[in-house]
Design a protein around this nucleic acid. Structure first.
Lengths: 134, 134
DNA sequence: TCGCATATGTAATGTTATCACGAAATTTTA
DNA sequence: TAAAATTTCGTGATAACATTACATATGCGA
């Protein structure tokens, strides 16, 4: 018997690196941060990420080739998530919107498109970074 | 006096390559297809793409690092576009949904986030490719 | 024609991601 | 528990995507 998801050592290390970060990390940045933990090659990171993405503990931000720990790791929601990415400070806000998800699902149904994954990303400037820039 | 946008030679070549393709092309695929037109280096493609994206004649599909000619080049809509990308045949459907755009704008307003660009991409299987796979 | 902005050519380099192969660890099954 | 199957891991090489730096050319207004 185990908990919902037993992470291996590498998976735990990668997840911790992402949880500790205040902004998304690229795979190679993760690699650099885990060198002293014995990481030597990109594949060690990518393999761990693959699993973490599958579990839902981590999200990939497609528009910046980077990864973040899920903001709601308890209820690892495999539904449609949206991300607001600040291009100044790198901060990311994760949110959901059922109406948007439904509307996309409606479109897909009507067009007989079977979505496997939905990507919604807002690139812009967060509140903190827009202060003083009217 | 000129038309709305005079494209340079390189820009025209890149745009033609994308218009002729039945699926999105990567920058390096474009490069390969334009070798006999004198293209030698990635930057020639990337520079042309940069301009075409700015004008709105081309879209970048963030989740697959590829580019498509805009489906509505007349009214080059700089608003929020959505793309449904078939992972089997590569075909892409471009569409808009005002309600989704509004809802995202509402979220941004509420959170004081200033979006510069919005990415919506559905990855999945198109109707044609799902026939015979119940 | 001069000066400036834009466009181009090219090499080198930086960044992101995967392949191929074998070894080690873990789980399953008998 | 031992053998078999599965999953994970280590490592080097390579592929795929994108930018920097610098030199040259081209068009256009003063």
């Amino acid at each position: 018997m185990t908990t919902a998801h037993d992470l291996t050592k590498n998976q735990s290390l990668v997840f911790s690196a992402l949880s500790d970060a205040r902004a998304p990390l690229s795979a190679y940045t993760i690699l650099d941060r885990l060198r002293e933990d014995g990481f030597r090659a990109p594949l060690q990171v990518y393999r761990a990420l693959e699993k973490l993405l599958e579990i839902g503990l981590v999200h990939r931000l497609e528009s910046i080739n980077a990864f973040v720990a899920c903001a709601h790791p308890q209820c690892h929601n495999h539904g449609t998530m949206a991300f607001a990415i600040c291009e100044d400070c790198g901060n990311v806000r994760e949110f959901t919107d059922d109406q948007i998800a439904e509307r996309l699902a409606d479109w897909a149904r009507t067009e007989n498109f079977r979505p496997h994954k939905t990507i919604i990303e807002l690139r812009g400037q967060c509140q903190a970074c827009s202060i003083g820039e009217p």
